[in-house]
Simulated scan of single mutants.
Amino acid sequence: MAIHKAADIIAINPIFEGRKIIIASDSKVVVSWVNSYSFGSTNHVKLIYNIRKNLSKLGNMEVIYNARVTNSFADMIAKRGSNMEGDLFVCGDL
């Protein structure tokens, strides 16, 4: 759900146009579903299809695996965002 939400926000927001976007997830399974021909769980086919559609439409966005233990900042932001109403944006240049 988080990857789907991020891809939707990025796809409609002009601030991300022309930028290289990397969405990192701590779920190897979900990253493999998004980046392969398999849809994994039949319960998630529509979500995976929509994520892939946004990835191909923009061409500058990719989804990668990043273990939770190696990215404590992202884990903290995710926990914080799940406790808030509305959207939470964190932008920065690497």
Rank of each mutant, 00 (worst) to 15 (best):
72 S>H: 14
87 D>N: 06
41 S>Y: 03
20 K>W: 04
54 N>P: 08
67 A>H: 13
69 V>W: 04
74 A>M: 15
75 D>N: 15
47 L>C: 06
83 N>W: 04
43 N>D: 07
89 F>P: 00
59 G>S: 08
35 N>S: 12
59 G>D: 07
89 F>Q: 06
59 G>F: 06
7 A>E: 10
28 K>T: 10
34 V>N: 10
86 G>I: 00
22 I>N: 07
44 H>W: 11
27 S>W: 02
50 N>P: 00
34 V>L: 08
3 I>T: 07
76 M>V: 01
89 F>L: 10
51 I>W: 12
85 E>Q: 09
35 N>L: 01
1 M>Y: 06
12 I>H: 14
14 P>L: 01
12 I>M: 11
19 R>M: 03
11 A>N: 10
34 V>C: 14
20 K>C: 04
4 H>S: 12
18 G>V: 02
73 F>N: 15
94 L>C: 05
91 C>M: 09
22 I>Y: 07
48 I>R: 14
89 F>W: 06
77 I>M: 12
49 Y>K: 14
94 L>P: 07
77 I>P: 01
23 I>Y: 04
79 K>A: 13
64 I>E: 02
69 V>Y: 06
12 I>L: 08
49 Y>M: 10
67 A>C: 07
71 N>H: 11
14 P>Q: 07
27 S>F: 01
20 K>F: 04
54 N>R: 14
53 K>P: 00
